[in-house]
Amino acid sequence: MNMDVELINWIVIIIGQILITIGVFCDFVAALLMIRFPNFYIRLHALTIGSIGGAVVPAVGAALIAIGSPFLGTFRWFLAGGALVVALFIFILGGAGSHAIARATYRAKIVEYRPCYIDQLAEDIGEDGC
């Protein structure tokens, strides 16, 4: 019986570590893109890479690692539950928050993007196009 439980713990930990590796890689790439991208609207993509790939995936991975590591003691279930709640919150709030900021920035015309070829939102609203 003890051998099976040990094996399951190892599998869960390995899966958690794979998720954390993906998350850390996504996070580092998003940080680089956040600096390299030319203007605000393209940086929104870097933000959602950093928040979804860089925060939700490692949070789920950390939850799996917490479940699979009995040396943490009984509080690891609380830790796994809390990590999944944080992952759900970031998953929902990340997109909503960046959408709110993008709408406000567009409406307030804070960012002007020089090579502007077509602006369909402006045409929909009725303002003059690009």
Partner: peptide, 19 residues
Amino acid sequence: LAIDALGYDLAAFLIILSI
């Protein structure tokens, strides 16, 4: 945007720290 990304990654970082 920078504070957003920083804050969300800090939340994930706190979970790793609590382990």
